[in-house]
């Protein structure tokens, strides 16, 4: 007899919970809450990406056209698919000593998998994530970028 009642109470409970679920979805259909998707090309002007968004690797420069890259090559070594190349050159500094500085920090966006190992391992925090995401171009060579701006120098406080 107990099993008999269990059978029906189970059906009752099942129907109740199913109706509850349908009530919620039906409510969403007739009165949608905030639309979670973006209407992208229209809201281009106001669209703001999130802090953790991985758009591309960039090298921040300050107002004096100075960056923090020492050209050590750790990012190049850590990149799993070789999308970073570092070209260095020797230069004599103010004290007359020959030092190695970065000539070109070449970044192949076309090969990057956005794993972030270069940024994580950079000892002087010279590179970081940029927020741009419209990377489509008609020529693949445009995806190869030189991150340090021409004529830029290294900041004083960064130890080589």
């Amino acid at each position: 007899m107990n099993a008999f009642f269990n059978y029906f109470s189970e059906i009752g409970r099942g129907v109740k919970t199913l109706l509850k679920g349908m009530q919620i979805t039906n409510g969403y259909f007739f009165k949608p809450r905030e639309i979670v998707t973006q209407k992208y090309p229209e809201n281009r002007a106001t669209l703001k990406m999130f802090d953790q968004f991985k758009g591309e690797v960039i090298m921040p420069h300050d107002d004096n056209n100075q960056h923090r890259c020492t050209g050590c090559g750790i990012c190049e070594n850590n990149c799993p698919n070789g999308s970073i190349q570092i070209l260095t050159k020797k230069e004599t500094n103010a004290e007359g000593k020959a030092v190695r500085i970065v000539d070109k920090h070449i970044y192949h966006l076309s090969m990057c998998t956005f794993c972030g190992l270069c940024i994580k391992t950079c000892p002087s925090d010279a590179i970081t994530w940029g927020q741009t995401f419209e990377h489509a171009v008609f020529d693949r060579s445009k995806l190869t970028k030189v991150l340090n701006k021409p004529g830029s120098t290294i900041k004083k406080e960064v130890k080589g």
Binding site: Y28, E34, I35, V36, T37
Partner: peptide
């Protein structure tokens, strides 16, 4: 469309 509205999409 119905599925999108139910899931708060367009």
């Amino acid at each position: 469309r119905v599925c999108a509205f139910i899931q708060n999409r367009l």
